[in-house]
C-alpha cells in the first residue's frame, strides 16, 4: 500500500517531467524550464563541491562564463562543430577549476569564499575588457544553435537533450557519492586532519571536487551559449554566483536532489513573481530575496531535505546512511 503510494507519486512526477513539452505548448514556459535545467547542472556541481567536499565557491559563474565563451568562440571563430566546442568548454573550465582549487589547500570557509569571489570578478572584468576576444559589453552574436538534420533545435528538443544530460549527471553524481570517492569527500569535509591520517590526500580530493564542479558549470555555460545564440557579460556577475549558491543551499547541500530542487525552485520563483507582480519591475527581486532568506533561516538543511523527509514519512521509510547504498536494508535487520 505504502509502496504503491511511493510509486504513484514518483511515477506522476516523472510522467509530468517527460510529457511537459506536450502538456504546455507555451514557448516561454519551455524556455524558463530549459534555463532551470541548465541551472540544475551548475547547482549539482556546487552540491558536490560545497555539500560533499565542503569547499565554498562564490565565483561559480566564472566557470559558467569560461564554458560559454569557449564553446562560442570555438564554434564561431574556429568554425568547429558544436560537440567539440562543448568538450573544449568542459575541459577548459575543469582546468581552471584545478587552479582555483590550489588556494583551498591552505584556506578555509570565508577566506576561500573571498578567493572565489575575486576569481569570479576577475573573469567578469576580463570578459568586459578583452573586447577583441569576447566582444566586451557588446557581446558575441550568431553563436550557432544545435541542429538536428539541418534544422535548428526547438525549445522542446533542447528540453529533452538537457533532461538526458541531467539524468547522466545525476547517475554520475550518485555513483560518485556512493563510492570511496564520495566517502573521501565527506571525510575531508568533516575533518581534513583526520582524513589525512586515514591516508586520504585532501589536496587531491579538493582538486577533484573543484574540477568536477567547474566542468559541470562549463558544460552548462556552453549549452546556454548555443541555446540562446548570443552572449553578453550581464549574466556573469557576482550576484549570479551568489544565486547559484543560494539555489544549492535552498535545495539542500547534502543530497543529490538539492541541485534539482534548488535549481527548479529558484529559477521559477523570480519568473512567477515577475509575472504576478506586474507594474513594479523591481519588486520581484525584492520578494525573491526575502523568500530565499526565510527558507535559509527556517530550513537550513534545505527544501529538498524537508521535502524528502515529508515524503519518506508518508511511506514510512527510514532515512539511510550517507555513502553506502545498501545501508537502508541492513539497518532494518
Amino acid at each position: 500500500m505504502r509502496r504503491n503510494l511511493k510509486r504513484i507519486v514518483y511515477g506522476a512526477f516523472f510522467a509530468l517531467v517527460l510529457l511537459l513539452p506536450l502538456l504546455s505548448r507555451n514557448e516561454y514556459v519551455l524556455f524558463v524550464m530549459n534555463k532551470a535545467l541548465l541551472n540544475i547542472i551548475v547547482v549539482s556541481g556546487l552540491v558536490f563541491l560545497t555539500g560533499f567536499a565542503g569547499q565554498i565557491s562564490l565565483g561559480q559563474v566564472g566557470f559558467v562564463a569560461i564554458g560559454a565563451y569557449t564553446s562560442a568562440l570555438v564554434t564561431t571563430r574556429l568554425g568547429m562543430p558544436i560537440p567539440i566546442g562543448i568538450v573544449a568548454a568542459i575541459a577548459l573550465s575543469a582546468i581552471v577549476g584545478l587552479l582555483v582549487a590550489i588556494p583551498s589547500f591552505k584556506l578555509k570557509a570565508f577566506f576561500l569564499s573571498l578567493v572565489t569571489i575575486a576569481f569570479g570578478q576577475i573573469i567578469y572584468l576580463l570578459i568586459v575588457n578583452l573586447t577583441a576576444v569576447t566582444g566586451g559589453s557588446q557581446g558575441l552574436f550568431n553563436i550557432p544553435p544545435m541542429k538536428l538534420g539541418g534544422t535548428p533545435f526547438t525549445n522542446t528538443l533542447y528540453y529533452y537533450l538537457f533532461l538526458v544530460l541531467i539524468a547522466l549527471v545525476g547517475v554520475l553524481m550518485y555513483r560518485l557519492k556512493y563510492s570511496y570517492i564520495g566517502r573521501q569527500m565527506f571525510a575531508v569535509n568533516d575533518d581534513d586532519v583526520a582524513a589525512e591520517a586515514c591516508a586520504i590526500n585532501s589536496k587531491k580530493t579538493k582538486v577533484f571536487a573543484f574540477a568536477l564542479s567547474a566542468g559541470l558549470a562549463g558544460l552548462s555555460g556552453a549549452l546556454t551559449a548555443h541555446m540562446v545564440g548570443f552572449l553578453t557579460p550581464d549574466p556573469f556577475t557576482f550576484f549570479d554566483s551568489a544565486n547559484f549558491v543560494a539555489m544549492a543551499v535552498v535545495g539542500g547541500l547534502r543530497q543529490l536532489s538539492g541541485g534539482i530542487v534548488g535549481g527548479l525552485v529558484l529559477t521559477w520563483l523570480p519568473e512567477l513573481l515577475r509575472l504576478n507582480i506586474s507594474g513594479f519591475e523591481n519588486y520581484y527581486l525584492l520578494v525573491n530575496s526575502v523568500i530565499v532568506m526565510l527558507v535559509i533561516v527556517f530550513l537550513p538543511s534545505g527544501l529538498g531535505a524537508s521535502l524528502f523527509k515529508g515524503l519518506s514519512r508518508l511511506w514510512r521509510e527510514k532515512q539511510g546512511a550517507v555513502t553506502l547504498r545498501n545501508s537502508r536494508s541492513k539497518e532494518g535487520e
Partner: peptide, 12 residues
C-alpha cells in the same frame, strides 16, 4: 554557510 547565503541575499 547559511549566514553567508542569507547575507548575500540581504545584499540583493
Amino acid at each position: 554557510l547559511e549566514f553567508v547565503v542569507a547575507t548575500l541575499m540581504l545584499c540583493t
